[in-house]
Design a binder for these strands. Structure first.
Lengths: 350, 350
DNA sequence: AACATAAACGTGAACGTTCACTATTTAAAA
DNA sequence: TTTTAAATAGTGAACGTTCACGTTTATGTT
């Protein structure tokens, strides 16, 4: 029967009012005169009110619903289905607090669908929105409208230079490229050549992938190392033939860095190879290549953790009313064959 | 005003009793006749009771206090101070649920102090205990007594073969050694030699370190690779002279795996070296060596995450009354110079 | 059968908030 | 000044549990 923490009643007593106005002040519901508001604020200051979330949530039936706006997973980009588990787990923990999430999908290349989903989200008046800002101009418009309605947004995966102040959860792309470079540098012989592969599709997150490449190159700026680059927007079959030609013609290449979609490149290489291959994302196909020694290193973008941490952030913001960090960069995990199993199907305990 | 979830009242009504006995049954407080207990249980079965933790915690003033029994940090083993932050953060999140933790320390080599702390813990009747089972026989005795009092225990870091059923949070030592081997194998030339260094002190977790070594050796079983080993129980200065002698005499050594206390070995190696050094723990000294390129890879035991996950586990067990997983192996994170900053001072968001 | 005792069960007041509602004060209009 | 409306303040019943306590029922003893 501890009565240590000072509650709404205590501060009401101290301010000479009843709990009604205090509640109004604490939750800026309005309808309190300037003077009493000041008295209440002073009382809070003096006594140091600690809100009891349990009691608050118990009484108020308010449901918090969050929208997530993500690309559809496709055979070429299965990455996007990975967040779902993180959402589910976090949601499950926060169920007593009345949290709900709804995922809205759009096809990666379909701007119309994206816009339609943003409209649907605006209609439904969510309490918070996660999104991957694929279409810059449309995202800007959407975020402006959300802001007007006072709905907080969090970006996943990619940031938008046009909106530098939106909170972000994801990986530092530049640093991840830099890290890939350090790994390759350690793994290949000093005199060898390094190959960068960059496969851009219509509506990819170019900036994201370019940052990786820039980070990668940055590492080698101060070193002696010859670097070549293969770039293509072709279909997978063409890439394979072109690439295997390039590889045959370049015997000095020992290390290969693939900025995105490494699963489309991997078939070119045999398990019994003399290359070190490094790329991104723990999707099923890549895991297969990692297991049979085609891929050497994978860098995970941690979609599970992104999703989990994102929900936590909304909890902090909406329930605890804490200010949230603008940028939250997740650890850049290095996954190889022998630690794979700890990243593959694991909970958030990382 | 959702009344969806069926509560204690609903099931009381359905069972034809009042809420009193229902509460007693739900929390096995006793004092309920067989027949009514059955009726209540049947009602629960039929209606599917969902407990409301918020209401439960709001009313009950019960404080859950957890004891942690950890070695003192020393200049040679500063690792043990790393858990504190994880405890603090988790505690902070769970404060509304009435959680508390108290850390009991003993000197790594002082069996007496260990026993004294176990006695103190037994006296104070905690609701749960974390511990690192350094002294096997004494731990067995302690755990038996805790079990008699119905107090759950979780092991950190090391497991005890004598007590295989105690829940454990930590790293899979064998796998971490295996991983270190794969990393070294990728980084050194095929014809080079590998050196294993093992420095055992009086009361170290021998088993733990031996597992690492076994995992390491396992990797190379199927490969052609000559491996030599340096073992010592000497003081640091002697080790340094011995070791630098050994290194000079073994020009073929390119990769070095240190099973524990790599900070005591690192001074032997210069930044501008031709060795790849891999060892354990993100302690301050090692971080320094990683930054100036003396150490190449560090494997973190994630004391922060251990502590955080441990508290979460007690939350699941004590508040949610969930059965907890026996073994919870944390991801084996590979830390190099360029992803260091993401592991060093980061929250649990991994 | 009457009583004592113990076991089983029911009751209702909390826990700290929220929020619809009523009561009061204040300001504006008559 | 009185009347009226608007703004502000106060009230108290919930929310779903827990738990101390009082009441009822069953069991055993004389």
């Amino acid at each position: 029967m501890k009565k240590n923490p000072v509650g709404i009643k205590d501060i009401a007593l101290h301010a000479g009012v009843s709990t009604g106005p205090v509640d109004k002040v604490l939750n800026n519901r309005g309808g309190v005169s300037k003077k009493t508001e000041e008295r209440i604020l002073k009382a809070i200051e003096e006594l140091g009110y600690t809100p009891n979330i349990l009691a608050s949530r118990l009484k108020s039936a308010k449901q918090y619903s969050i929208a997530a706006l993500l690309p559809e997973a496709t055979p070429d980009i299965p990455y996007w289905k990975e967040h779902e588990r993180g959402f589910a787990d976090a949601m499950n923990e926060l169920k007593p607090y009345g949290f709900q999430i709804e995922v809205h999908r759009f096809h990666q290349n379909d701007k119309q669908a994206f816009v339609k989903q943003t409209a649907s989200i605006l209609e439904n008046n969510y309490d918070g929105v996660f999104m991957v800002p694929i279409f810059a101009a449309e995202t800007v418009k959407f975020v402006q409208r959300l802001k007007r309605n006072g709905i907080p947004v969090i970006f996943f995966d990619t940031q938008l230079p046009e909106l530098p102040n939106i909170p972000f959860i994801g990986q530092h792309s530049f640093d991840s490229g830099f890290l890939a470079a350090e790994l390759l540098d350690k793994s290949v012989s000093g005199s060898s050549t390094i190959l960068i592969i960059s496969l851009t599709q219509e509506q990819d997150n170019h900036l994201h992938f370019t940052s990786r490449e820039n980070g990668f190159k940055e590492f080698f700026k101060s070193k002696q190392r010859s670097i070549i680059k293969y770039e293509s927007t072709l279909a997978n079959e063409h890439i394979e033939t072109e690439l295997s030609g390039l590889i045959k013609a370049s015997p000095l290449v020992e290390g290969i860095f693939v900025t995105n979609g490494i699963q489309r490149v991997a078939p070119v290489f045999s398990p019994k190879k003399n290359h070190i291959l490094i790329g991104y994302d723990l999707i099923e196909e890549n895991v297969k290549y990692l297991k049979n020694d085609v891929i050497d290193f994978l860098i995970s973008q941690q979609p599970y953790t992104q999703a989990y941490a994102g929900i936590q952030l909304f909890y902090d913001l909406l329930i605890l009313k804490k200010a949230i960090n603008k940028k939250s960069y997740l650890p850049i995990d290095i996954v190889i064959k022998s630690n794979l199993k700890y990243y593959n199907h694991i909970g958030h305990g990382g």
